[in-house]
Amino acid sequence: MKKTIQYYQKIFTERFNSINFVKFPHELYEPIEYALKAGGKRLRPVLTIMVCDFYGNNMEEAMNPAIAIETFHNFTLVHDDIMDNAPIRRGRPTVFNKYGSNIGILSGDTMFTKAYEFVTLTREDKLPAVLKVFTKTAMEVCEGQQLDMNFEIMPEVTMDEYMQMIFLKTAVLMGACLKIGAILGNATNEQCEAIYQFGEHTGMVFQLQDDLLDTFGNEKTFGKRIGGDILDCKKTFLYVNAMEKLSGSERIAFQLLYNDKTMDEVEKIIKVKEAFIKNDVIADCKSTMQKHHDLAMEALAKTGLKPEQKAVLQEFAESMLVRDF
């Protein structure tokens, strides 16, 4: 099944890499080229063209919207890195770290605009439906980012609040990628909704695994510094789960530890990881991931795809449970 996704990856990557994003003024567009040609598996746009092909045998119809999705996704990363003060992305300096925050902001804005430019190249009869999904998703991703920023100054965050944030910030984009592909492949409304639900739940798994990898992953394969969320005092699933389990003086001590920005970085990461392990947050995170995976499989069954096509998407979803990148 991996060969199927690799087939579409090759097609999309070759098309995407053939685009020259650099033009005048060079200072604005070079960072865009740097961000967009940084590599990565291009999973979101690949899902778009693959699902379009599954339903309608017409992947070319989805190519420009797929390019738009990849451009939009990278725009969010450029701005997220500025807001998070993240120095590394995919094993390289982040755009703002290399070019400065002001250029990072402006280049990111331009990427957002370029994304819409590619969306407008959608075939006319499908453009309103695709634009509706794309715009709704773009708004939701920004809403999720704002909630994430709100959490930085909120003394307490509930698990429901956290799950709503990652749903908006991450899951809806995965759902939109698949739904846009289905729309362009002439799937029915019911099939479009089912594959959207599949994507949303798989996106939830992706983000929860991201939380795990940020603390317990390998920097070389993950592409970002390990322990970054801890050092930035970000309220992840691991943190919220631990806080829900702790009480009294232990809870206060853990909260003070997690929010301490003066402690030696290595020491803080070690101590927080020890607290996470002691409170069994890894098992709870994996259990929540499994619940969303099961819901994704229920949705997949309603997509109307052929068994061999469902098998490709099932394997993709299962890979999110165990990924290390």
Rank of each mutant, 00 (worst) to 15 (best):
Q9H: 11
A38N: 01
Q314W: 09
A138R: 01
A129D: 13
K261Y: 08
C233K: 12
R42H: 10
A171I: 13
E61F: 11
M50Q: 05
I82D: 01
V205H: 05
F216T: 08
A138L: 07
L168I: 13
S247D: 07
R225Q: 13
D125W: 08
K261T: 12
K271E: 12
E250K: 00
I153A: 11
L321V: 06
T76Y: 02
G56V: 06
D210G: 12
T120Q: 10
E267P: 07
T262S: 14
D232V: 01
I69N: 07
E14C: 00
D280A: 07
G100L: 00
I19K: 13
L131C: 10
P307R: 03
V312W: 11
D80H: 11
F72E: 00
A301M: 15
A253Y: 02
L184D: 08
D148R: 10
P31N: 06
L43A: 06
N186K: 06
D229V: 02
Q6F: 14
I153D: 07
T76F: 01
E60P: 10
I277G: 02
T221Q: 05
K126H: 09
M174W: 15
A253T: 00
Q314K: 15
T262D: 14
E274W: 01
G108V: 04
L36F: 07
T202V: 15
G108A: 06
T202E: 09
D109S: 03
D53S: 15
N279R: 03
N17E: 13
T135W: 11
V133C: 14
A299Q: 08
N57M: 10
D84Y: 02
D260R: 02
D280C: 06
T215W: 08
I19G: 12
L300E: 00
N186G: 11
M159E: 13
K3W: 05
N57S: 15
G228Q: 00
K234G: 03
V51A: 09
K291Q: 09
M243D: 11
M243A: 13
M63Y: 10
C142M: 07
D84F: 00
M63F: 13
F72N: 06
I11H: 12
K136T: 14
N64R: 12
V133P: 13
V46K: 02
S287G: 11
I226N: 00
K310M: 15
T13N: 01
I88Y: 04
H73P: 02
E156D: 05
C233N: 11
L313T: 03
A66E: 00
T158S: 04
N17Y: 12
K41E: 10
E124Y: 05
K268L: 14
